[in-house]
């Protein structure tokens, strides 16, 4: 069995206990809600976009440690990225938590702490929910996205 500490790394626990950018953005011009019906995780992602550049990102919601930490770190990482780059980062992150044996640490940066998630197939959706929600916000989807 895999070591629990691979999943609950101290960086992840820190972000789950003290999530960064945990707020609504007044006047956010992109926003989406995400929901994981399996466990009840719920996240709202707020973005301020200026010419396809993400100048501010935040989130609110209730979720497990993995979902909260993933939301927190995602909002830090996508700030000052173009929406195109942010979506590319989602692709890399998705590979990281599902299949990737090797990953591009230069691009992923701190997000590499989520590599342990791929050993827990039931928890992949916890980590990816905020990213699906970010994508929906960038694509201006009005219906809440779900992981199902």
């Amino acid at each position: 069995m895999n070591d629990l500490q691979d999943l609950y790394q101290s960086v992840i626990l820190d972000h789950s206990r003290n999530p960064r950018n945990f707020r609504a953005i007044d006047g956010a011009n992109a926003k989406a809600e995400g929901y994981n019906p399996l466990c009840g995780d719920q996240v709202t992602v707020y973005l301020t976009l200026e010419d396809h550049l993400i100048t501010d990102a935040s989130f609110q919601g209730v979720g497990c440690a993995i979902c909260t930490a993933s939301s927190s770190m995602m909002t830090q990482q996508v700030k000052r990225l173009s929406s195109e780059k942010a979506l590319q980062l989602f692709e890399l992150f998705h590979d990281l938590v599902t299949t990737a044996e090797e990953f591009d640490i230069d691009t992923l940066g701190k997000l590499a702490v989520f590599s342990g998630v791929r050993n827990y197939p039931m928890r992949v959706k916890c980590a990816s929910l905020p990213w699906h929600t970010l994508k929906a916000a960038l694509e201006q989807k009005e219906q809440p996205v779900t992981t199902e």
């Binding site: 999943l7 466990c39 009840g40 995780d41 497990c64 993995i66 039931m122 928890r123």
Partner: peptide, 22 residues
């Protein structure tokens, strides 16, 4: 201070099967 899903994963490490969710 915890979320049921995290509790379920950690208990599963101890081979304890409980249900977490709604």
């Amino acid at each position: 201070g915890t979320h049921p899903h995290d509790v379920g994963t950690i208990l599963s490490h101890e081979a304890i099967c409980v249900r977490t969710g709604h």
